[in-house]
Simulated scan of single mutants.
Amino acid sequence: MYCATLTSLCYFVIFQDEPECVKYFYKEKVPEWGASTPGAARLCQRFVNRYHFATLYDTNHRIAVYSAYQFQPSNGGGRESRWFVEPQLVNKSWQAEMKDGYWLGKDYPGVYLGEKQALNEDFTYSGFDRGHLNPNGHHAVPSRNATFTLTNVVPQNPKLNQNSWRIHESDLTNLFKAKCSKAFVLVGAVPSAENWIVKNNVKRVNIPDYLWNAYCCVDNNDKPTQSGAATARNTEDNKVEKLTLVQLGEFLQQFSDEPVGELFYNDCRA
């Protein structure tokens, strides 16, 4: 579902209509961070007639502000060769189930799909990886397949994507399996001022300056047990900096005139 207004109220209205999506936020609290992003679209990511995660998507920069999900141990499989797009970002009356961008384009040959979202061809020969925010390795099939939507990827430096950030995601997998009954996760990007993938002299997809993530672990009684965060410059520096949630809030505050607020209910405190 697409929403053109810029208030967090709009986000809650959408999740009232699609209540399955609130479960990806601890205690069903949606962060204030990013709510005032111009052109923000609130997506409840739907695949094979099920919801799998939530995304706050910046239709102007054509990258996500963040993706929100619950960790699942992977059961293998689910490595897609397809890349999906969100039909509801093309036309609000179209169904809110991700579709293979290639075949959606064939079905609507006179309709441009990329006005409000990135397309697969934007990344071709760009020099950047299609870097998952919500990583496919943090899910079982079919949620794993659902991460292959272009609203869930950003142009990521290949060295970072294939090395330090990949290792960080793997370390989180081990931590979540060992320490968490449930793990609620946010993964986002900080857009750059003027760094874009350009196609045919058109600025198509913003190349973010930073990636970040945050997690809140809870026990069987839904009580917080552990939290943490990390940031990485989207460069060949190939370094991930581990932070607390408080430190991440201070980091994100540099990029906004509005308070960051709580990323998780009660800052994931017991």
Rank of each mutant, 00 (worst) to 15 (best):
R233F: 08
R166G: 03
A229R: 05
C217I: 08
D237A: 08
N161S: 09
N221Y: 10
P155C: 07
A193E: 15
P155A: 07
W165V: 09
V187L: 01
T235F: 07
Y215P: 14
I207S: 03
K159P: 05
N161R: 00
P224A: 05
L186W: 12
R144F: 09
L133P: 06
N161V: 08
G188L: 07
T231Q: 03
T231C: 03
V141N: 10
A214E: 05
N221W: 07
N174S: 15
N221S: 08
H168I: 06
A193P: 09
V154R: 07
N136G: 11
R166N: 14
K177C: 07
I207D: 10
S143A: 15
R130D: 10
D209H: 00
V198L: 05
T149P: 02
T149I: 09
D219E: 12
V185W: 04
W196L: 03
Q162M: 13
N136K: 13
G137L: 12
D171H: 06
H132I: 07
N213A: 11
L211T: 08
S192A: 08
S227Y: 01
N163K: 01
L150Y: 03
D209M: 00
D237K: 05
S227G: 08
N201H: 02
E194W: 02
A140C: 06
V154S: 10
Y215I: 15
A183D: 10
H139E: 06
L175S: 13
V205D: 11
T225N: 11
F176K: 11
G131Y: 14
N201Q: 13
A146S: 12
K223T: 10
N161E: 01
D237N: 05
S170V: 06
Q162L: 12
T235Q: 02
H138M: 12
K182R: 15
N174P: 04
A232R: 03
L175T: 13
N234Q: 01
R130L: 13
N145R: 11
Y210H: 03
H168N: 06
